[in-house]
Computed example of a mutant assay.
Amino acid sequence: MNDPLTPLERRVYHYLLDFLAENTYQPSVREIGRRFRIKSTKTVAEVLQSLADKGFIEREGARSRGVRIVGWSSMGQVQPVPLYARVNPVEPYLTEENRERWVAMDRSFVPTDDAFFLRHGGEAMMARGVHDGDWLLVSPSTRAREGDLVAARVGAHVLVRIVARQGAVLSLAATNGEPREIFLGPSDDFSVLGVVSAVFRTWHDEPEVEGADG
């Protein structure tokens, strides 16, 4: 088991993950220093070396970007998946300014290359195992089948519901305390964002980390 990270080490490690997911290469020592307001490159190097000693990264000391995250493979075994804080009411529904972060996922958990995360709010689907605050992995290119759980934009709202079709009409049903189904036809303002393929939940809140200066 890896030794626990200090608050600064944890922040730097998460920054490395997010940066690599978005750029496909690692930040330089100076870029890390600017991000965390650490003036000394020696201090940054010490943080990186500690991450290496604890087994989270591997380093090539002679290179400015000489960091490899352990468990991250350039062969495609890990895939960055975007997490969106909200969905636009008009196209494009998912935009960069609404993207909260990237999440590095083992590819075996990612159903399609266009998959994304949404953070669920509410208790309408608890009987299907979806709780308030869960992360939902949504697959836009997976075709929804009768009884699937889908994320749908209805007007300015995003709902997670069980889908069914009745001819040209789509019905969305909840499982907890909302007996009224929502029926949507061709003239209604809605869009099925994708099929919910997985639900992720943390059992404990992450501790807040105070800002760190070098």
Rank of each mutant, 00 (worst) to 15 (best):
M1F: 07
M1Y: 09
L5Q: 06
P7K: 09
L8F: 09
E9P: 04
R11N: 10
V12D: 03
L17S: 03
A21G: 11
E22A: 15
N23D: 08
N23I: 06
Y25P: 00
Q26N: 11
G33V: 07
R35G: 04
I38F: 08
K39H: 13
K42F: 07
K42L: 11
V44A: 03
V47L: 10
S50C: 10
L51P: 00
A52H: 05
D53K: 13
G55C: 02
G66H: 09
V67I: 15
I69E: 04
V70P: 00
G71D: 10
W72C: 07
S73F: 10
S73K: 12
S74I: 07
Q77C: 05
Q77H: 13
Q79T: 10
P80A: 09
P82F: 02
A85R: 15
V90S: 15
E91F: 08
E96K: 15
N98H: 13
R99K: 15
W102V: 04
W102K: 08
A104E: 04
S108D: 12
F109D: 11
T112I: 08
F116I: 01
F116D: 02
F116N: 00
G122R: 01
E123L: 05
A127H: 15
R128P: 01
G129W: 08
V130M: 05
D132F: 06
D134W: 01
W135D: 12
L136N: 00
V138C: 01
S141G: 09
T142I: 11
T142Q: 15
R143S: 14
R143T: 14
E146Q: 13
G147V: 04
V150W: 03
V150P: 01
A151K: 01
A151P: 07
A151I: 02
V154N: 06
G155C: 05
G155R: 09
H157V: 05
L159S: 01
V160P: 00
R165G: 04
L172D: 04
A173P: 00
A174W: 01
G177E: 14
E178S: 10
P179I: 06
E181G: 09
P186R: 07
F190T: 05
V192P: 05
L193W: 00
V195P: 07
V199E: 02
F200P: 02
H204V: 15
D213W: 14
G214H: 02
G214F: 03
G214R: 04
